[in-house]
């Protein structure tokens, strides 16, 4: 728990831009909410490694989104089924299914497409929200947080030293 907290605070207090942190949260949402062993997640990992996305935030956020994904799976199934069966979209899905990528994407499983659509949609909201939250935190709350006993204790601990390297 302390490790997680240290990682989180370290990332928030770092020089990294809020965009990098926000992007990490968005990618963690896609990784966590959708089934991990899916083709699109290889692409997500590539983006996370290629671009300067904050990996600590991504690793910390992933389990939270995975838990949320588990709880919301019936919703994903239902949303996915509606999307796959929507008359206007059927020709598109059919064409996509008949491509090699489409065949391996598993998008014809309602849970996969439902969770991906919801994850991307929530990413659209999460990205600006996280950016604003990080900016607000750094501008208003960072100094106050540093005064907290817990923060000071944490900064003095070996965890902080470990993640400050």
């Amino acid at each position: 728990m302390l490790t997680v907290l240290a990682k989180l605070l370290k990332a928030l207090n770092s020089e990294q831009s809020p965009n990098q942190l926000a992007m990490a949260v968005c990618l963690a949402a896609i990784l966590g909410l959708t089934p991990l062993m899916s083709l699109h997640n290889i692409f997500v990992v590539l983006i996370a490694l290629w671009f300067r996305v904050n990996l600590s935030i991504l690793i910390v956020s992933y389990p939270l989104f995975a838990l949320l994904g588990y709880l919301l799976s019936p919703v994903f199934e239902s949303v996915g089924l509606s999307i796959l069966q929507a008359q206007a979209l059927v020709p598109m899905w059919e064409s996509f299914f008949n491509t090699v990528i489409g065949r391996w994407s598993n998008f014809y499983f309602s849970g996969v497409i439902g969770s991906l659509i919801i994850a991307v949609a929530s990413g659209v909201v999460l990205f600006p929200a996280t950016r604003i939250a990080v900016a607000q935190y750094r501008a208003k709350w960072l100094a106050k947080f540093d005064q907290f006993k817990v923060t000071r204790m944490l900064k003095a601990s070996k965890f902080w030293q470990l993640y400050s390297d």
């Binding site: 199934e77 996915g80 089924l81 069966q85 499983f109 309602s110 849970g111």
Partner: peptide, 8 residues
């Protein structure tokens, strides 16, 4: 793996 929609 959940519900699978079988397209043509």
């Amino acid at each position: 793996k959940g519900l699978r929609v079988q397209f043509k």
